[in-house]
Design a protein around this nucleic acid. Structure first.
Length: 306
DNA sequence: AAAGCGCACAACCGCAGCTAG
DNA sequence: ACTAGCTGCGGTTGTGCGCTT
């Protein structure tokens, strides 16, 4: 027993929009607004379209100030940075890029940006195990998933190493006082904010501002719509948008990094760290259960953009 | 010239979450 | 507390266009 369809599929038009339909929709919305009811809108506007289709057309194409094509390097970096931090939350990413729609960014990522990064990636380079501290090599993590993450992509670096100047600036976030005492990060395994408090890992309970470096693991947001508004759900916290988590007491960051501006030439300074292995395991494990495939991919991009 | 192919973008689909009744 | 309807989101598919052979 599935959901009732949102409209009578037999009587609605599908496929590309004609200029006449665009005009009708645009004129109607400019005159009357959406009325908070997309389902009823097409009938009122005299369109033989599904309400969802109208909404999508308006949001992705007809609404004012939409930018199309030609993403700048700056936008590339923002997209990559946010993808690393929050994953494929295109609506949230779009909210940070004025004039861009989630659909646009998603398409751009899938068709261009991803390939661009893939082509730059020297897989053999970062797969070398020699990058890991000896303590890690001598005490491999217990779970296969964690081991995979260690073995394939991640390296350990001191938190003072690299800079990535783009991440935070374009975001409409406060520029200081990033430290937070609580978090409301959502996660596939966390069904609600309330359950979050108890489910959150120790590593995630410790959030600090890191303006210029590294990645964070495990945070994921959900709220913004593609028109940039945040109409429901919870607020996106700073740490979800580009600030990183790390274990302060151990002065450790788990990262893979690079500098976008060097054109894909990756210099690493890897220093074995005196770190709490258990916490690292926990962090990696927590990140890794999210989605193994995506984690690999994210780690790869982290490698390039931090 | 035309057929085949690949790419980019637009649009659709199904699901989850929210909310009002 | 439950349910149905609506919205928004992310993944996927369809379509048109340009390039290559």
């Amino acid at each position: 027993m599935g959901r009732a369809p949102c409209c009578d599929k037999a009587s609605v038009k599908k496929g590309p929009w004609s200029p006449e339909e665009d005009t009708k929709l645009k004129e109607y919305i400019e005159k009357h607004g959406t009325g908070g009811n997309w389902i009823a809108l097409p009938q009122k506007a005299g369109l033989k379209r599904c309400g969802k289709s109208c909404r999508l057309r308006w949001l992705n194409y007809l609404r004012p100030n939409i930018k199309h094509g030609d993403f700048s390097d700056e936008e590339d970096r923002i997209i990559c940075s946010l993808y690393v931090n929050i994953g494929s939350r295109w609506s949230i990413i779009a909210a940070q890029l004025p004039g861009r729609t989630d659909n646009d960014i998603k398409n751009y990522w899938n068709t261009k940006l991803k390939k661009k990064l893939m082509s730059l990636l020297p897989l053999s380079h970062h797969r070398k195990q020699a990058s890991f501290p000896s303590s890690i090599l001598q005490n491999p993590p217990p779970s296969p998933s964690s081991h995979q993450l260690y073995g394939e992509y991640c390296t350990y670096t001191p938190m003072t190493t690299t800079s990535f100047p783009v991440t935070t600036e374009p975001l409409s976030l406060p520029s200081s006082n990033y430290a937070t005492t609580t978090t409301s990060i959502s996660h596939p395994f966390h069904q609600s904010q309330d359950s979050m408090a108890s489910a959150i890992s120790p590593m995630q309970q410790c959030y600090y501002p890191i303006r210029d470096s590294m990645l964070m693991f495990g945070s994921e947001g959900s709220c913004s719509s593609s028109d940039g508004s945040c109409s429901q759900g919870r607020e996106i916290k700073q740490e979800e948008m580009g600030y990183q988590s790390y274990n302060d007491s151990n002065n450790l960051m788990l990262s893979c990094y690079s500098n976008m501006n060097d054109g894909g030439c990756f210099s690493e300074t890897l220093t074995p760290l005196d770190c709490d292995l258990e916490e690292i395991k926990q962090l990696i494990r927590f990140n890794n259960v999210d989605d193994e495939n995506k984690t690999e991919e994210k780690a790869m991009y982290q490698y390039y953009y931090y």
